[in-house]
Amino acid sequence: MLSPYGPQHAPAGDVGAALMIVDSRLKQIYSGKTGTDAEQEALIDQFIASLGSQGADDLLDGACTLIYMFMTWLRKAHEEHGKDVIEYVVPNLVAAMRMMPKSVRPEAIPTMAGLVIAAGTGLSPSLWRNQYGDWTEQEMTALEVTAFLLAEHINRVTEDRDFATRLITEALSRSDGE
């Protein structure tokens, strides 16, 4: 039975913009810089402010699509080894977010875990989340952190710092060709 929360019912959003933000964060971390780069933060804030409300909604949907795509890849990789993606990914993700209290408010962590579990079970994270009302301010950064942590996890698993970005870029290229 198909779920009304299946990915086929969800808008993809602006996956390119969401990927750009996640990739920017990955490059910042991999460069060894500690703290935040004020110039980069200002550029990202300026970019987000320029989107308008529809663009911001598209960015949210794009981030959820990234989470779905990352979890789909992780689920398939874990299944190849007879492991459950939820069991191996969600606890590590929650633990990482709990170590980031300035970026991820504690009340946002259960929602982010729910998004990841929804994606890991084949549901659309954005449709799953939308059933609970509008996004909250605390969830904005937590959503970005969730997508970032999943991408970084994939890069660590594959021992390739660009794998997660390339995974999405190639999927986007394939979809453009169809």
Rank of each mutant, 00 (worst) to 15 (best):
T72L: 08
G82Y: 12
A95T: 13
W73E: 02
H81G: 11
I86C: 05
G114V: 01
T72P: 03
A108S: 11
A108D: 05
E87H: 14
P106H: 08
K83Y: 08
M71V: 02
I109C: 05
Y88D: 13
L115D: 00
M112F: 11
A77L: 10
F70Y: 14
M100C: 00
P106M: 04
E87A: 11
M99T: 15
N92E: 13
R75G: 14
M69H: 06
W73L: 03
K83Q: 15
A113W: 05
A108H: 00
K76I: 02
V90C: 03
V104Q: 09
F70E: 02
V89I: 15
A113Q: 05
D84Y: 13
V94L: 03
E80V: 12
P101Y: 04
P110E: 10
E80M: 00
S103V: 11
V85D: 04
M100F: 02
V89F: 08
A113E: 08
I86Y: 09
E107M: 09
A77P: 00
E87M: 09
H78I: 05
V90L: 10
M69P: 00
V90M: 02
G114R: 07
E107T: 06
G114Q: 06
K102W: 10
G82K: 01
P110D: 06
V104G: 04
R98D: 11
E79W: 12
R75I: 14
P110V: 07
P110W: 11
P101C: 14
Y88P: 05
A96T: 11
P101A: 12
V104C: 10
G82D: 06
L74C: 02
N92G: 14
M100A: 14
I109F: 10
M97F: 04
R75S: 15
V89N: 07
M100K: 10
P106Q: 11
R98M: 05
P91S: 00
A95S: 15
T72R: 01
F70G: 02
I109N: 06
R98S: 07
E107A: 15
H81M: 11
M99H: 15
H78Q: 13
T72W: 01
L93S: 00
T72N: 09
A108L: 05
E80F: 08
S103L: 15
M97T: 12
H78E: 15
K83M: 15
A95H: 12
M97Q: 11
L93E: 00
E107F: 00
E87P: 09
A108I: 01
P91M: 00
I86K: 10
V90H: 08
K83C: 08
K76F: 00
M71E: 02
A95M: 14
A77M: 11
A108Y: 01
K83L: 15
R105C: 01
T111W: 04
E80C: 07
H78L: 05
T111S: 10
V104M: 06
M69I: 03
P110Y: 05
H81K: 13
E80Y: 01
